[in-house]
């Protein structure tokens, strides 16, 4: 692996498959009586979170702890950031305390990239503004391979395989979604065909340069999707009126039981969480056997263990 993981585009196909294969092996740790490995003993991982997060922060914390690393959790609330300390000074302070890796979530796109230039340790992007969230894309890719790939649930015979030919439809607030951008980059690297579906107002301008196609008609895409990934409508980032009403959005772009019936027999429904039930996804869809939402959370821990092991486990770059 590279020293830093800032963007899903940092990963080559080989590296991405290596992360998935490593995660497939580490998944067995969750089923053991002792869920702990000594691999990162003596290393310190700092979770530097400037934005609210439940699953990403706890997931990174659980991953680091299962590998025996020490974890320092830092949230901007109640810290010197409130007194006006800059990101650079905060990061240098934490590094002076002996951190080997900084996991950062920040509201500003590009913050992890700047941080990587200031510190000597590794930087892992855990979501920056509306830019990227590479570990979410990795866990989504892992979940897709686990559910749709050949071989058993433990991924034994899936080693080395990518996602060639898998049709993934990403639906919703693409404009504000770092998950969508990272997924488009990573899934296309792995050979999947990605389609974005959203109201025209929620599609970014530069989308023509992305390796995917764009559609405004959800019903037309569902029949030819192996995976449909619903995104949350990010009200907190919306500074203008992007659609007339929640109800209208939900009717045209929400996934309810009727729409789910249009999907092929084997197709799965994903959501990165947190969900707005009744807006982009109906409760009966979220709780259906096709939904991988709970599996995605469990896989998040193993995929992040794989990333931490590959970045911190050895000396130098492993690829």
């Amino acid at each position: 692996m590279k020293r830093h993981l800032i963007s899903a585009a940092d990963l080559s196909r080989e590296e991405a498959v290596l992360v998935l294969d490593t995660a497939a092996e580490l998944a067995s740790v969750a089923g053991r009586p002792i869920r702990k490995l000594p691999t990162l003993r003596g290393r310190t991982v700092v979770n530097l979170f400037y934005e609210d997060s439940t699953r990403t922060r706890t997931s990174f914390e659980a991953a680091a702890k299962r590998l025996s690393a020490d974890v320092i959790n830092f949230s901007a609330k109640g810290s010197s950031v409130a007194k006006g300390e800059s990101l650079k000074d905060t990061a240098l302070t934490l590094e002076a305390m002996g951190s080997d890796a900084i996991v950062i979530r920040h509201g500003a796109s590009g913050a992890p990239h700047r941080l990587a230039g200031w510190v000597t340790g590794s930087v892992i992007n855990a979501g920056d503004g509306t830019h990227e969230h590479p570990t979410q894309a990795l866990l989504d890719a892992f979940t897709i391979r686990q559910r749709l790939g050949s071989g058993d649930q433990h991924g034994a015979d899936q080693r080395g395989t990518a996602l060639d030919g898998v049709r993934v439809t990403i639906v919703g607030d693409i404009l504000h979604s770092r998950v969508a951008r990272s997924n488009v980059l990573l899934l296309s690297t792995l050979g999947a065909e990605v389609a974005l579906v959203a109201p025209p107002t929620l599609i970014p301008h530069a989308v023509s340069s992305w390796p995917c196609k764009v559609s405004y008609d959800l019903d037309a895409e569902l029949g030819k999707s192996d995976v449909v990934m619903m995104l949350r409508v990010q009200h907190e980032r919306m500074t203008a009126a992007y659609f007339p009403s929640i109800r209208e959005y939900s009717r045209r772009y929400g996934l309810d039981a009727g729409r789910m019936a249009l999907l092929p027999e084997h197709a799965i429904v994903m959501h990165p969480g947190p969900m707005n039930r009744g807006v982009e996804i109906a409760a009966e869809v979220a709780d259906s056997p096709r939904s991988t939402i709970v599996a995605q959370v469990a896989n998040g821990v193993t995929v992040r263990m794989a990333v931490l092991y590959l970045m911190l486990g050895g000396a130098g770059e492993s690829l």
């Binding site: 490995l37 000594p38 970045m311």
Partner: peptide, 21 residues
């Protein structure tokens, strides 16, 4: 039984791919 994650020389070389346990 893959022993990679328990090796004492992990830090002397780049991280290795894991084998099956």
């Amino acid at each position: 039984l893959d022993v990679t994650l328990h090796r004492d020389d992990l830090r002397l070389r780049p991280a290795r791919a894991l084998r099956r346990t």
